[in-house]
Amino acid sequence: MTELERRLLALEIAVPEGPDLAPAVLARIEGRPFPWRRAAVLGIAVAAVAIAAAFAVPQARTSILRFFHLGAATVERVDTLPPAVERSKTKGLGRALPLDAAEDAVGFRLALPPLRERPEHAYVLGGELASVFLHAHGQTVLLSELRSSNELLLKKMAGDATFVEPAQVGGSPGIWIAGAPHTLTYVDRHFGYHQQAILVRGNVLIWIRGPLTLRLEGKLTRAQAVELARSIH
């Protein structure tokens, strides 16, 4: 063996810890509806509600070209984004509550990555959506969680210049949204809009974890976001 070969063998490449693939592989070969496909079917049912919500507000009357639906989130590919406001750091996230009180308010324990200390506060919107700020890869990242079965729907609208791709987080289905800014609106599934659309400039990963729909927003790459999402339990 030459010196160059020895040096190549000694290089230690950073490889992330691999996920447990068995549950997703088994679900697919057993022919059980894999969550992603189930979500797609569910999306058809929810689409009617989302379309009604979109057309309930005149400014959002734009051509809906395609739907993606996952848990409590729906992403619409549109030709024109609706008017949207910039969000200040915490405005629009709801009330700031001590973490325990926030968990009581939403009725579930927040899934978090391994942290030295749990966040002191979480923001709660409508008693359904809880959000906390995290620090990862030198960035501030917003983590939001809500029950997939809740009435609240996270509705995103994305134009042509935004990538919307299927993703996976530890065998669970997800959606990765990156590129040009897109909008976020909290929609009540029965009564229409909750608030004005917010312009989102960061990348977003949405995925399912048990009964929850989780959303990460920040300036992370897809691999960084998936890695962080995998650590959230």
Partner: peptide, 18 residues
């Protein structure tokens, strides 16, 4: 890319089974 690797490995095991 970790996300691509996860999808590739999962799809690979499904295709291999079939």
């Amino acid at each position: 890319n970790a996300a691509d690797a996860e999808e590739a490995a999962q799809d690979g095991f499904v295709k291999a089974y079939r």
